[in-house]
Design a protein around this nucleic acid. Structure first.
Ligand SMILES: [Zn+2]
Ligand SMILES: [Zn+2]
Ligand SMILES: [Zn+2]
Ligand SMILES: [Zn+2]
Lengths: 156, 156
DNA sequence: TTTGTTATGATAATTATTATCATTATCAAA
DNA sequence: TTTGATAATGATAATAATTATCATAACAAA
């Protein structure tokens, strides 16, 4: 929290931007939420405590956080960009539950290494990658087995 | 071409749909183009030879082709859905060049296997996955080395 | 303060895709 | 073949996420 604020301040000073009340508040809120939030979700949470802050500012601040290394944009194919915490958060890939929307992170060094192999083979130089695995998470699997009602177990 | 038409016909018969001139023509055009086309790109090509066919029909037909197993939807993060041939085309992942947009396919059985390992470890059952590797392709790498003008080597 | 800028909030615009709907085309049965 | 039920089409409106615009407000520093 303290450290993240410093990073934002540093980036802002470096780029000669301004540290506004809104930017600080949006960062705080973003950090207080679980990762992989959409702009709309963050905006809703921000609005709760400060209804004066506009949606456009949330979008603008998310871009700022991305550029400063505090957030990372991700597309999981549900039609909206999701943002995850990117400070002290090393590379990882995702298991996405198509039933409840739950997102689990994982890392597998061997998979990472094999990608280099592919790249070499194709004389391709990797900038980044994403591995998204879609299916049913532990909980949703269980539901199927036991014939429980098939509702989302997250959110409302 | 013959086989693909049969597949479409079979699917259409099975679902009690209708085999229209437009559907046949859009399938033909789709198959004649390189894979990983967007709806807009396909529409442009279709329009060239038959301007009477509407964009909505191209979208609808692409959905139909996807459901019948002739096309597969993919999102590479450039904001539009791309469709690739899916008949006689086994699972593969992609190397995407961020400079020229070129898409190369690859398959790596070991990477596939290790994903199962991840899934087991998380009691997750896989439905599908995608591994997209972004970076510079062979050609664009070369350009960088030799200080050639940095233009796209495709299209235009 | 004044001044030159940057940021904000409201809202219009954009873009890809989907929905609507009146009209047309398809196809199996008569 | 005609017919008739209904699926498909094309034009266009609607939707949804995101971005652009712009008048006003907040900053920073002279
Ligand atoms: Zn990875
Ligand atoms: Zn993550
Ligand atoms: Zn794969
Ligand atoms: Zn492919």
């Amino acid at each position: 929290m303290k450290k993240e604020k410093d990073i934002l301040q540093h980036y802002i000073a470096h780029k000669r931007l301004r540290l506004t009340r809104q930017r600080q508040f949006i960062l705080e809120t973003f950090l207080s939420m679980e990762s992989h939030v959409s702009a709309e979700e963050l905006y809703k949470e921000v609005s709760k405590r400060d209804p004066s802050i506009g949606l456009a500012t949330v979008y603008r601040t998310l871009h700022l956080l991305s550029k400063s290394g505090l957030a990372q944009e991700r597309q999981f194919g549900d039609g909206q960009t999701r943002y995850e915490h990117d400070f002290n958060h090393s590379h990882h890939d995702h298991l996405i539950c198509t039933e409840c929307g739950d997102i689990t992170e994982f890392e597998h060094p061997m998979i990472e290494r094999l990608q280099e192999e592919i790249a070499d083979r194709n004389k391709f130089s990797i900038y980044t990658h994403r591995l998204d695995i879609y299916g049913l998470c532990k909980r949703c699997n269980k539901k199927g087995e036991t014939f429980m009602p098939t509702n989302r177990h997250k959110g409302g």
